[in-house]
């Protein structure tokens, strides 16, 4: 994609084509326990993370960054990207969290995992705000890309990335107020702390890419 010639509409189309596929994680046949719910959620997160890397590579400007900067951006934003995806899937389903097409959780099901009900309530509240503000699909795509491109706490210097930012401005300028709100609402601290605590208490084993990303968060915190 030649960013110097791309129109905002083409840019949004590129974001649409970069969208990851729906990930399936079958719901256990028995009622959830703390361990089985955390197992389902972490398995899902790990699969989604793999697709998130593929998504990020299709965001214009991203692969032109150094590998170091690509890692730093993904390290910073992965939980927020997972959260906004969950909120978008849940936007038309008040009171429910659509983690996956085959993993739909009611708010009260969060009672079986210590500390997660508070996070479910926060996610449901944020999703309600998205619903009230009538978040459009195009806006969701732009906000998610913005979360990635703005995520590093360090400045990432790249002309192509600046151009990507420029391309995001026109689609977002139609409703700058609500869009700023969307960015403001998506915070991952509580979710990250909860997952870390579940891992430290050995409620659920954490493997693979999810473990790498979680460890990176721990090291950054230190």
């Amino acid at each position: 994609i030649l960013l110097s010639t791309v129109s905002p509409e083409q840019f949004v189309l590129t974001l649409l084509e970069a969208e990851p596929p729906n990930v399936l994680v079958s719901r256990p046949s028995k009622p959830f326990t703390e361990a089985s719910m955390m197992m389902s959620l972490t398995k899902l997160a790990d699969k989604e993370l793999v697709h998130m890397i593929g998504w990020a590579k299709k965001i214009p400007g991203f692969v032109d960054l150094s590998l170091y900067d690509q890692v730093r951006l993904l390290e910073s934003c992965w939980m927020e990207v997972l959260m906004i995806g969950l909120m978008w899937r849940s936007i038309d389903h008040p009171g429910k969290l659509i983690f996956a097409p085959d993993l739909v959780l009611d708010r009260d099901e969060g009672k079986c995992v210590e500390g997660i009900l508070e996070i479910f309530d926060m996610l449901l509240a944020m999703t309600s705000r998205f619903r009230e503000l009538k978040l459009q699909h195009k806006e969701y795509l732009c906000v998610k890309a913005m979360i990635l491109l703005n995520s590093s706490e360090y400045a990432v210097a790249s002309d192509r990335l600046s151009r990507s930012h420029d391309c995001l401005v026109p689609p977002c300028a139609v409703r700058p107020g609500p869009l700023t709100c969307f960015l403001f609402f998506v915070h991952s601290n509580k979710g990250m702390e909860h997952l870390l605590s579940m891992k430290c208490k050995n409620v659920v084993p954490v493997y693979d890419l999810l473990l790498e990303m979680l460890n990176a968060h721990t090291l950054r915190g230190q």
Partner: peptide, 23 residues
């Protein structure tokens, strides 16, 4: 630890494969 050491899978995914190659 360096980014490379702590992100072996992430590095591999960024450098080599598409998700369909990996999953």
């Amino acid at each position: 630890s360096s980014l490379t050491e702590r992100h072996k899978i992430l590095h591999r995914l960024l450098q080599e494969g598409s998700p369909s190659d990996i999953t």
